[in-house]
Amino acid sequence: MERMDAAEPLLDVRHLDIAFASGKKLTKRTEDVHFQVHPGEILSIVGESGCGKSITALSLLRLLNRQGRVVGGEVLFKGRDLLSMTEKELDRVRGREIAMVFQDIMYSLNPVFTIGNQMVETLRRHMGMQRGQARERAVELLEKTGISQPRSVMKKYPHMLSGGMRQRVMIAMALTCNPSLLIADEPTTALDVTIQLQIMQLLKKLRDETGMAILLITHDIGLVTEMADRVVVMYAGQCVEEASTQQLLESPAHPYTRALLRAVPGIHDPKDRRLYSIPGAVPEEYQDLPGCRFAPRCPYGQDCPGAREESQVNPGHMVRCCRAQEGREAYGA
């Protein structure tokens, strides 16, 4: 979906710094993370484990655990800063305007209540519905997520459902209040590919029907390709590249993005293709790394002067690499 740049962003994350306490020390896990989600848009944050994508998602609704805290930045939702709101104000945003689905579907549902129980309670609390009305609405929501026998599902406990069904229930619950933004943190990582496809098509359909925006957090660049309108690539706590999905796939500018794309084995690759493997591993502690954080693993940048600032390679295409242009040729991309 093409977005209009003039439109007000729904969510505007600015210079977000998150730190985690270990003992008395505070360690920064993200630095200057920023992105915007526009109404009806699917924005994807992609990166490997430890890059800070999940804590970024959690911090938006102030759901970080006690060790983690936001030490700088703003999260503007419809112009209001979620980080400086009172708990009471935030409660009106959580679930109602911004809903969230997680990877750990098992832990997101209460094991001792039936699905129907949990859905009705949510509807009564958030929408102030009567029991009977809530029940009808729950059936409707489950139907919307492609569950063929909603009434029998409502009588079941979470453990009686398959992973795919549980994720549908989670999505149905997230839709309870017609949120304008859905944050989906690796929603299909625990699911099989054929079920993943069902869930992804469901999310797209819901986006098209309701106009809700989706912030999709994932490690799977293939999924990003198929789902996202725009992409933010994160590495070691920073946004290293941001572009439209097409720009990112067809002319990736950051060496990390390019390496990532070439490290994925495709199902139709030529037999003799050798995967590009990025040497080394993601640094575990990176807050004190001088210069570019990818430099130690970069194919042409061990001696990089280091780009901490971002630059624009094309309209709407930002990259945090000092050699984005020259590297492009060297890399043969």
């Binding site: 590919v193 054929t194 993943q196 496809l197 660049i221 495709g266 199902i267």
Partner: peptide, 13 residues
């Protein structure tokens, strides 16, 4: 199964 695999190729989106 093969159809369900997400492919990192914009042309196949």
């Amino acid at each position: 199964l093969l159809d369900a695999v997400p492919v990192a190729d914009y042309a196949l989106r």
